[in-house]
Design a protein around this nucleic acid. Structure first.
Lengths: 235, 235
DNA sequence: AGTCTCTCGATTTTCGAAGATACTTGATTG
DNA sequence: CAATCAAGTATCTTCGAAAATCGAGAGACT
């Protein structure tokens, strides 16, 4: 008989309904399934997520301070609005956080960080090598891989708070990207850029990695802004 | 009969029980009424705040992403822990946000901003001129005035997100200040420092204001850190 | 004693009914 | 015709009962 194993059943999955609803709801807001400004009625949500009103309120209350939904008294929750101004605001802070975090991360990263980064990059690259058509179909997979790659880049940054704030801004940028993507053709793969950032980070060229990352993000923001008139409310 | 008035009854006060509970709960965490690490049992909270379980959960869920409480599945909510590391992390980001915000604020501030700042400073100075004993008794008043003064300084900063994040970090720093204050004598008034920042801001010396503000905040953090062994959990 | 299992009380989590509040409709008035 | 009001409908907000879960301790076994 093998030695007694004390390891968990490998399921740290959402043990709380409210947490599960939270992540699904957040995903649906980020990917534009709920358009900005949409009212979130409890009757609909109850049907869509199979959770009780109280549970839904709990999840929405969580999203409130993150700035993804808004609440006015006795009129319920709405998906937070978007605007070109807000995008620029979010983007500027996001880029700065990413750059500061990657500088510290490259400087502090140990073997485990390197391994995590290599793995995350491998997974992302595998998807990005596919044809545009295939990438489109497996977009949710790409989304997760892309997110993981960017997280892996900064994972060794010692400031927990910087990482938290970075993640928050990443979420908001992702929403802008995805909402915009619904109104324009899928852009070219950023495969080469990701590879360059990955290489710079692994070879411990912190400043270079930060510079490449910054350019990568600025370009994304500009692409989104360029298509803004198509999906944004008029000023 | 006077002409029909369509203006609101001038009461934007907490119309939602959940919002009211939220602000009281937040205040009680910030001022150390609930020590870091304390478990927040619903039975107690229900008694203390006179609200239902669902409402309390909603408020706590709001505090979760702000980092003031923590949740582990099926074991309920706890007041977030504190540590010297976390304090330094929070403080560094807080100072940076404050400095960037005041730079932009001084540069963009209009007449209304000046007026708000003068008023907030006046209120704060009025309390700070009192004797130490009296200041101690009216500490909640001072707390609000101090908070308003610092908010007034940066109010004209055009980046809504920077202001949000600044406010979040301000909250956390306030918690550290207050928790630490329970274990040491009340320090001397910072009246002169506040006045110097106020003067620099009003005379549009942005860099000077930022420098003074930074020094002001760094000193506070150092005071708290100096007394850390008395109120912090051992590493 | 140590370790495992089971039971039971304490606590959390979920849920939707009941009470508030806001919005719509349609009739009425100036 | 526009403005006002009232009844009716839709929706949000609050609350605590009931189910689910955890953990401390008793008992059984090695």
């Amino acid at each position: 008989m093998p030695p007694r194993t004390n390891q968990k059943p490998a399921e740290p999955e959402a043990v709380l309904v409210s947490q599960d609803v939270l992540s699904r709801l957040k995903g649906d807001i980020l990917d534009g399934h709920f358009a900005p400004g949409t009212r979130l009625r409890f009757a609909d949500l109850q049907r869509a997520y199979g959770a009780g009103i109280g549970t839904l309120r709990e999840a929405l209350s969580h999203l409130l301070p993150e700035g993804l939904v808004e609440l006015d008294a006795n009129r319920g929750f709405r998906v937070a609005a978007i605007s070109a101004d807000d995008l620029q605001d979010v983007s500027a802070l996001h880029i700065e956080f990413e750059q500061r975090a990657i500088l510290d991360s490259v400087r502090h990263g140990d073997d485990a960080w390197e391994a995590g980064l290599v793995l995350a990059f491998h997974r992302l690259a595998k998807i990005e090598r596919l044809s545009r058509e295939e990438r489109k179909q497996r977009s949710s997979e790409w989304l997760a891989a892309h997110r993981d790659f960017h997280r892996a880049l900064v994972a060794a940054c010692p400031s927990r708070w910087l990482l938290r704030l970075r993640a928050q801004m990443y979420d908001h940028m992702e929403r802008y990207r995805l909402v915009s993507q619904r109104h324009r053709p899928l852009g070219p793969s950023k495969r080469a850029e990701h590879e360059a950032i990955h290489d710079a980070a692994l070879s411990r060229q912190a400043e270079r990695a930060a510079e490449l990352l910054g350019a990568h993000l600025r370009e994304t923001t500009e692409t989104v802004l360029r298509h803004a008139p198509q999906f944004m409310p008029p000023p």
